[in-house]
Amino acid sequence: MISKKSTIRDVSQLAGVSISTVSRVLNNREKARTIPAEVRKRVLACAEQLNYVPNANARRVFTHRAGIIGLLVPSHTRMNMHIFEDGHLTRLISGVEAGIENSDFRLLLIFNDKRFMDDREYMSLIQSQNIDGLLVWGAQPSETFWQEPVEAGLPIVFAVTVPGPLEQYNYTINATRAGTRKALELLASHGHRRILQLHETRNAFLERQMDAEIAEFLRERPGITIDVQDIRSSGDEIAVPLFRRPGAPTAVLAYNYSMGVEAYGRLAEAGIRVPDEIEIVSCYSYQSRKSWVSTVVVDDYEIGRTAVKNLQKLIESPDRRLQAEIPFSFFFGQTTRNAADVPTP
């Protein structure tokens, strides 16, 4: 004989409360906080006694929610690497996990591949209630399709990078411009008047943020010159001969930590002493105590945590503009003089 499956009505009758109260206790932790503790305990005890398990489809109909947040990341073909080899992404995911730990949401990983764009999944996933909102990591200015879901008011938060003018989007990003300014001010305070910038072409958003701050800095400091080398177009190697010429740069401003390490190694091989002859500062890194390159350190964990918290607010109230900029820290390594903290490589 097949036993009858318990329903939410059975739980409400046994507990002596309304069906909506049972639903709030079992399906919505936030709203359940307004229910007296004694009532919550009674509902949970009755549900356990009846072996009642909420039906996911019924819950979706009742709450108009899937209980799922999507995390969109570039496919490995677009990144030209295995995505979980990216330390920034793994730290961001840890922050996202912390941000939804005590919520009703679960996380769904989605890849930003050709199908995602061609099938307009950036619209259908939310509109069909497969997910409640989307957290986007790795968006680029070339992705013009983001205008459509944003204009439709769908709950989307961009993390780290933004595909267009900042004022048009909900985002949680690094304080990239402030970090770049910190690196420039440090080199200028050490007397450098000619600096080599190692340029990155892969991440257009961060590159534009840095370039905008550098341009503003140069307008304020007309006595400083910055030469630019596209690190990719020269075989990922710093142009060492440049430092042997009269009036050569006396410092390197590296886009990220890896470029700073590359510069350090190439200059050392050429017999150029760092930091006595050349100082190196990186503008973008998650490294800190294990570093020997002086660097701006971004907090990807906090970006992930804040971004997913703001996304939950958007899901509740879509008519918002939630924009956050997470502060950076600065680590003094062996590649700048007068280092406050010099670890062993």
Results as ranks from 00 to 15, higher is better:
Leu196Pro: 03
Ala268Gly: 04
Gly133Lys: 02
Gln140Tyr: 00
Gly223His: 15
Leu125Asp: 02
Thr344Pro: 01
Ser6Val: 07
Ala254Ile: 12
Ser128Phe: 07
Asn55Glu: 11
Phe328Leu: 12
Tyr264Ile: 11
Gly223Trp: 13
Phe105Ile: 00
Leu314Trp: 08
Met1Leu: 08
Glu185Ile: 11
Leu206Ile: 15
His199Gln: 09
Ala215Cys: 13
Asp341Lys: 06
Pro149Trp: 10
Ile19Pro: 01
Met79Ser: 05
Gln229Ala: 02
Arg193Phe: 06
Lys31Asp: 08
Leu14Lys: 09
Ala98Lys: 02
Gln49Trp: 00
Ser234Pro: 00
Asp113Met: 02
Ser6Gly: 12
Asp104Lys: 00
Pro74Tyr: 11
Asp113Phe: 05
Leu242Met: 13
Asp86Leu: 06
Thr295Gln: 10
Asn57Tyr: 06
Ala307Phe: 01
Ala152Ser: 08
Thr34Glu: 12
Arg33Asp: 08
Ala47Arg: 05
Ile226Ala: 03
Asp119Ile: 06
Gly95Met: 07
Arg321Met: 15
Asn112Gln: 10
Tyr301Gln: 03
Tyr122Lys: 01
Glu277Arg: 10
Ile326Glu: 10
Pro141Met: 01
Ala66Cys: 10
Ser124Phe: 12
Arg91Pro: 00
Thr172Gln: 06
Arg59Leu: 09
Asp227Arg: 02
Asp341Ala: 03
Lys309His: 09
Arg65Tyr: 02
Arg78Val: 03
Ser282Glu: 14
Val252Pro: 13
Asn102Pro: 02
